[in-house]
């Protein structure tokens, strides 16, 4: 069985701080990490590999050459191969173009049974690329999945796909693309053995020279259907009224405000 995991490098935002003047993120010490939901996708792939014989896992990412470090990190979870899809002409691709490039790259990798993605990246939060890859490859999809179970024949999976008020149990024929959420598993800490093994695995780098089937009119800034035309600061500072005093004084004033607002 062949599994492909798609990952994205995102800025490390758990420890972000703000420039207090305009509420922008202070980027001076922001690191690139594997998108947290993609770690769940990696973990799920590794669990499938532990369960069945003859499973190979490839990880793929599109981005600048600096993403190589992130792919190296992904390999330490016990994956078999890594592909970095990188070309200057890919820069500025929106989700449509990104999914198209990734789908063409996956076709170039060859046969696969299952593609796993995180449900969305924490920097863009569109959650679109997974479905768009599935459409490009004309395979079934299930999104926001918290559980994957294999049928005995390994040709069909049963998944639980989260909804607003519960979940849906779906039967999906392979090959398929599944996007996973953080409920599906808790990603492990890579073992020393796997991390050492990863050092020996080269990152396979593909550009447009290798991916000859890519239609250049569908990629990059010019090929993307959506264009970002403006960026503006959005947080107008509010005139915050501060209440101070002893806890009793604060509560008295707060109580009055709640009363004015008809809460009490």
């Amino acid at each position: 069985m062949k599994i492909i995991v798609c990952i994205k490098q995102v800025p490390e935002t758990n420890n972000i701080d703000f420039n207090p003047s305009d509420l922008t993120i202070n980027r001076s010490h922001v690191n690139g990490i594997i998108n947290p939901f993609d770690l769940n996708a990696i973990e799920e792939a590794v669990r499938i590999k532990e369960k069945f014989d003859d499973v190979t896992i490839s990880v793929i990412s599109m981005g600048p050459p600096s993403f190589e470090k992130t792919l190296k990190e992904a390999l330490t979870y016990g994956l078999d191969s890594a592909y970095l899809i990188s070309d200057k002409l890919f820069a500025g691709s929106d989700t449509f173009s990104t999914a198209y490039i990734l789908a063409e790259s996956i076709k170039a990798i060859g046969d696969f049974d299952l593609i796993l993605c995180g449900k969305h990246a924490i920097d863009g939060e569109t959650g679109q690329v997974g479905s768009e890859i599935a459409e490009n490859l004309k395979i079934p999809q299930a999104t926001n999945v918290k559980k994957i179970e294999f049928h005995e024949n390994k040709k069909i999976i049963k998944v639980e796909s989260d909804t607003e008020n519960g979940y849906r149990v779906l039967e999906v024929k392979l090959p398929a693309l599944i996007t996973v959420n953080k409920e599906i598993n808790v990603p492990r800490i890579p073992s020393f053995k796997d991390a050492r093994k990863a050092l020996k695995i080269p990152i396979i780098k593909w550009d447009l020279g290798k991916l000859k089937n890519i239609d250049k009119t569908k990629i990059g800034l010019t090929g993307s259907p959506t264009k970002v035309v403006n960026i503006e600061k959005f947080q107008k500072k509010k005139d915050t009224k501060f209440i101070s005093g002893t806890p009793n004084e604060i509560v008295n004033e707060l109580y009055q405000i709640l009363k004015d607002k008809h809460v009490v």
């Binding site: 449509f96 939060e125 679109q128 997974g130 479905s131 459409e135 909804t163 607003e164 993307s224 259907p225």
Partner: peptide, 23 residues
């Protein structure tokens, strides 16, 4: 932008070869 809309919109946008902005 519900669980259904988020599953359907990108699939459809890709099929129609058009752009999609989330949220």
């Amino acid at each position: 932008a519900t669980s259904i809309g988020k599953d359907l919109a990108p699939r459809l946008a890709c099929r129609l070869e058009t752009g999609l902005s989330a949220d």
